[in-house]
Nucleic acid binder design. Structure first.
Lengths: 337, 337
DNA sequence: TACGTTTCCGAAAACCTTTAAGTCCAGGAG
DNA sequence: CTCCTGGACTTAAAGGTTTTCGGAAACGTA
């Protein structure tokens, strides 16, 4: 460990000026002769002076720090959002204070207080699912932005993926590929994501005047469920030519089971997944056409919006961010692959 | 946004005492009459007073904040370590300042300076691989602990998974199951993880006086490589009865290709993976026996060690943390599953 | 009464920086 | 010569808290 850290008064006395002059020189302000500024800068470099952000924050009232509150950071979805936010902040001089409430409301309140006591300039709350969640607290002295999981309170600012639009886009792609007997396997219906994606499916089907093949099958978001659902579906609706799956895990399971049952993908049945979780979507055979929610961008956008809210005006409400369809082999026209 | 935040002097005047007395009452110190303490506490509650951590840190010289510097947070390995560290810190009153250098040394130095200027009490550096990395900086005024990726400088404190020991444990398990023709498929040899795991394999084999079946096959850490290696291996060494894979991705690829070639797992060939990446290890059929590096615990331990280093003495050097073998169906004795 | 002890509380310094206000001086205008 | 202007620099206050030390009151003892 190095010896005591240099303060601005050390710099000032080494340069032979007052503290105020040193401060002005270091901050590039007027009223300092060029020669004097040089001396101060040289002194600062020699002492490897780093201004104390605490003292600075105490005066300015701005810490240039934001809190990032996650409910379940182990989840696959929180992480990219977090990364995107960190990215946007890191570009400036902002720092991110990370807290994980692990789904516990008490702990969340505790963290909010701790962050407030550290005088963060703003808060980003990233949810573990797209289900609306309780507002973190009314009347906080700093702006709050919700990412991935929106706030229940429409007066708050939330950024969520446009699941309905993305699902419709995915299904339109299947229709454009000439598929007409489209089935749907997805996750538990208490997930808004599952309901939204189904809504998107219905939307695209009704636009085209096509009926859904069989009932929507709901189960866990797992590969195992994808396999199981595949067996049920191929029994009940043997003539399907496409499946829209609510997640890549489900899709990977479906593909595997379908192949074992002698159905070729994509020749007999085209498959679309969701999430673009690359370890699954690019490693299955064939690689999966899937929806990429672009979560890093969502996180970045949320962070940029927090900036705006910090020094100015926010635009409340739920902002739906467009997703992207990544087209791979699992939806190629028959005979191509 | 709420109105101006209450300060301790607001609390003091509401309670009708001096600032000093208010401070003592709030911090549970002696020399305050019980009744007075009550009044102060009540006033603080009424104003929902939160002490300003900046002012407090300015005096005490302790911010109760640590910096978490990651080189590649998108990686699967950094995240659990980060979570474990956050966990250990969150238990106390510590907060974590997260920075992602994205593998760029310049950016890393920039972040170190920013963190130092914020007066963090310590630093955790989490690597993206177990390859030793340059020390973040000499003579920092705060303690530094490296997690997952150790520092090149043996005077630093590093915590890494015991890959050699874990690999040996995995291979001993195969031997205990009666397997004698054991092959090895792993990742690129410029990864220390790949070299260490191979070393563990050799160790366990030579203990038992058993020769490795064929050469070690090195390739990318991917499922695709696992499939490809399986084809080569089953051609070159058709009589193998077990494979130790350097990662679950490789193992999943191997299992898939082996089954397509008509080899039953585990009856004909037992398979062990590495990482316990659950989306792969529990969803393959059969579920994979694999090594769990227990990265969250590693992160927690690193954090706890940082505590120790902050207020006392550190024990320099590379600390190897034991891993755990998770036994599943892919190594069951023939005839069981 | 004088004095010592205990108990409770307040004044003020300290932490480090920024900034508003003030000082000093040279030089130009009248 | 006086007055004014502007540049270059310094002084001092402010920001919120903790902590040391001194003071005051209350009480007991001689």
């Amino acid at each position: 460990m190095a010896s005591k850290r240099a303060t601005i008064s050390d710099v000032a006395s080494l340069a032979g000026v007052s503290i105020a002059t040193a401060s002005k020189a270091l901050n590039g302000r007027q009223d300092v002769r060029a020669a004097t500024r040089e001396r101060v800068l040289a002194a600062a470099a020699e002492l490897s002076f780093q201004p104390n952000a605490l003292a600075r924050g105490l005066i300015s009232g701005q810490t240039r720090t934001v809190g990032l509150l996650t409910s379940d950071s182990v989840g696959r979805f929180g992480i990219p959002v977090l990364l995107g936010a960190e990215d946007a902040f890191g570009a400036g001089e902002m720092a991110v204070l990370l807290c994980d409430a692990r789904g516990d409301a008490i702990r969340e309140q505790h963290h909010v207080r701790a962050l407030l006591s550290r005088r963060v300039d703003g808060l980003i709350v990233v949810g573990e699912s797209t289900n609306p969640r309780p507002s973190v607290s009314k009347d906080l002295p700093v702006p709050v932005v919700y990412a991935y999981g929106p706030s229940e309170d429409p007066a708050d600012v939330s950024f969520v993926p446009d699941d309905v639009g993305a699902a419709a886009m995915a299904v339109r792609h299947l229709l454009a590929m000439g598929r007409r007997r489209i089935a749907h396997i997805t996750g538990p219906s208490h997930y808004k994501a599952a309901r939204d994606r189904e809504e998107g499916l219905r939307l695209a089907l009704s636009e085209a005047g096509v009926a859904q093949a069989g009932q929507t099958l709901s189960g866990p978001w797992s590969q195992r469920w994808g396999r199981h659902a595949a067996e049920m579906l191929l029994m009940a609706e043997p003539e399907i030519d496409a499946v829209f799956c609510g997640s890549d895990q489900v899709a990977a399971g479906f593909v595997e089971a379908a192949r074992e049952r002698g159905r070729r993908v994509p020749d007999d049945i085209a498959v679309v997944g969701y999430d673009n979780w690359e370890v699954l979507s690019t490693e299955t055979r064939p690689a999966l056409t899937t929806v990429d929610m672009n979560l890093e961008r969502l996180g970045r956008t949320a962070a940029q919006h927090l900036f705006a809210a910090i020094d100015g005006k926010a635009t409340p409400g739920v902002h739906r961010m467009p997703c992207q369809l990544v087209i791979r082999d699992s939806t190629s026209p028959p005979g191509i692959s």
